[in-house]
């Protein structure tokens, strides 16, 4: 892949890669590192996306790199490195609720709610079955519902089969 094309992909998708990593890791600094890992891998050119599947490939790399980082002994020992939620953060309640979910649930929530990706594609990106996506979505929603219990109307009980709202 030409440098120019790599640069275009970086400009187009680096924030998406960052956000998916952030949803996993809860740390902007770690998410930046994941971003670097993903795009350096792209720059190496040893492997790369198929035409038309660039974003999916990048998100898959981001998910894998995030999972690697989560599994690392160092991070497990350090514990959560996420920054404290600023008291003034207006979305603090939602932020805390989302970040209280296990990372694998956060990733599904992110891909569904933010990226607007359907369950089948989420499964392809995360390399899990569609059933697993459904299960995680369902559990994540239940947890969010519990965490945001003062606003029960927030979480719909749809199963996501039709894809999220765009």
């Amino acid at each position: 892949m030409e440098r120019e094309e790599q640069r275009r992909l970086f400009e187009a998708y680096s924030d998406d890669v960052f956000r998916l990593a952030y949803s996993y890791l809860g740390s902007a600094q770690d998410a930046e590192d994941v971003c670097q890992t993903v795009f350096l891998r792209l720059a190496e050119g040893r492997t790369g996306p198929r035409p038309g599947k660039e974003k999916q490939w990048l998100l898959t790399c981001a998910a894998n790199a995030s999972k690697d980082l989560l599994r690392s002994f160092w991070r497990r020992n350090v514990g959560e490195l996420s920054e404290d939620v600023p008291a003034a953060r207006e979305d603090g309640e939602l932020y805390r609720a989302v970040m209280s979910l296990p990372p694998k649930y956060r990733a599904v929530i992110h891909l569904y709610y933010y990226e607007g990706i359907g369950q089948r594609e989420i499964g392809e990106i995360l390399r899990i079955s569609q059933t697993a996506v459904q299960t995680r979505m369902s559990r994540a929603r239940a947890m969010l519902r519990k965490e945001l219990s003062d606003d029960p109307g927030e979480i719909q009980k749809d199963d996501g089969a039709g894809g999220p709202q765009r």
Binding site: R19, A31, E32, D91
Partner: peptide, 25 residues
């Protein structure tokens, strides 16, 4: 809706300019 709130929340999170420059380099 939770989706809108979530999207709004995550829109605030973005790769910093410094980090972008470093990665591109």
């Amino acid at each position: 809706m939770i989706q809108e709130r979530y999207k709004k929340m995550m829109e605030r999170e973005a790769l910093s300019g410094e980090a972008k420059a470093a990665i591109l380099e």
